[in-house]
Amino acid sequence: MPLALIVEQLLNGLQLGLMLFLLAAGLTLVFGIMDTINLAHGSLYMIGAYLAATVTEAAGSFLIGILAAVIGTAAIGAALEIALFRSLYRRSHLTQVLATFALILIANELVRIVWGSQPISLNMPASLSGPIEPVAGFRYPAYRLVVIVAGIAVGLLLYVGVTNTRVGMWVRAAASDREMASAMGVRTSRLFTFVFAAGAGLCAVAGALLGPLLAVQVGMGENILILAFVVIVIGGIGSVRGALVGSLLIGIVDTAGRAFLPALFRVLFPPAISSEAGPALASILIYVLMASVLFFRPRGLFPARG
């Protein structure tokens, strides 16, 4: 197996993992701090992608498109938090699941009404549309490399923010013990709005960056949402570090699995089995991984609460 192919797949996995991290970080914080399941997190990602596509088309600039998407989605996130999620914090998980499931239905239909059922296109900047050759003999799409770099940058920003700023400290305190944090004077209600809006902004970044690579269409949020949930369950709810580890793990395992498992099966098994078993196993690999992690660590790898 050529080294270049392996490196390429690992980079793809890294890219997926970093984008997953952007979603998972917001999700795990909302979960960890507000103890709230938000199925509509994927819808924020979708809205981010749609906003990016529309503004990029109108303004002619991908950068402006992303910026508009982040600001717009964060604003929507803040509005949702104030208007709806505040009523959900004290309710049961079942209520939250159903309410946010309703949000998915509403969001999908609204998007369908405004933009139609057909996928819309979000084009990557022309300057990035070709491959580059970072190392002699190895070519990789420039855009994907930029996505990786952007993901790392945002991730670092998040890490620095969470560990080194006052707000970040509040966030970590609240994730570890919400009541105690509130008793210690953390303004929980504003913090919640901020966390929610920030999570929405991160979703928008992921949506905008992935838009050119995947289709921008109604329902795009659902598939990645499930991956994000797998990530935070593996990583441990409430833990940003867990979200990072989980995302990279899932991103790489899923990508490498899909790329190499079928080939591996073809080597090991007769075609009658391998032609289907390989891809089938590849598609469920991350769920097997999740079940295994939960078997040994029922609360994930780095649960935020003791």
Binding site: I37, H93, I226, F229, V230, I284
Partner: peptide, 12 residues
Amino acid sequence: VYFIMITLAFAQ
């Protein structure tokens, strides 16, 4: 919530 997620994952 882990139960919710793992049942979802199995269904997937």
